[in-house]
Amino acid sequence: MKHTLIHLNTSPYSSLACKEGLDLALVLATFEQPVDLCLSGAALALLSDTQQPTAEHGKNLHKLLAGLEFYDIENVYIEKNHSWLDSTTSWQGVTPLDSTEWQTMFSQYQQVFRF
C-alpha cells in the first residue's frame, strides 16, 4: 500500500481542480489507502470560514474539511506564517509546518499528486 499526498495549490472556486483533487482524496480513503492533504498558494483560501459560494461557484468545498475525519483523512498540512490567514476565521484542523518540515514532507510519500 502506498502513502499518498494530495497537494492543492489552485484557487478553490476558479476551476474544478480543488474539487477533483479532493474527490481523489476521498476515493483513496474509501479504498482504505492512507492519504494526507497539503494546501498552498491560492488553495489556502479553502480554509477561510467566511466563504459563501453560490451554485455558480460550485460546491462549498470548505464544508468538506470538517467531514474529512469520517474518511480517516487526518492530516491537512499548510506552511506556517501565512499572515493573511486569520486563525480566528479559518478552519482549525490544519497542521502548520515550518519551511524545513514543509520541504521534507514531500519526500515522505510514495506519491504526490498536484491539483
Binding site: 476521498l26 480513503a29 474509501t30 482504505e32 460546491k59 462549498n60 468545498l61 464544508k63 468538506l64 470538517a66 467531514g67 475525519e69 469520517f70 474518511y71 480517516d72
Partner: peptide, 15 residues
Amino acid sequence: QEFEVSPAMRPLVKA
C-alpha cells in the same frame, strides 16, 4: 447538509 457530500460506506459507518 454539513459536508455537501453523500458518504460512501466507510464514512457512513463512521458517522
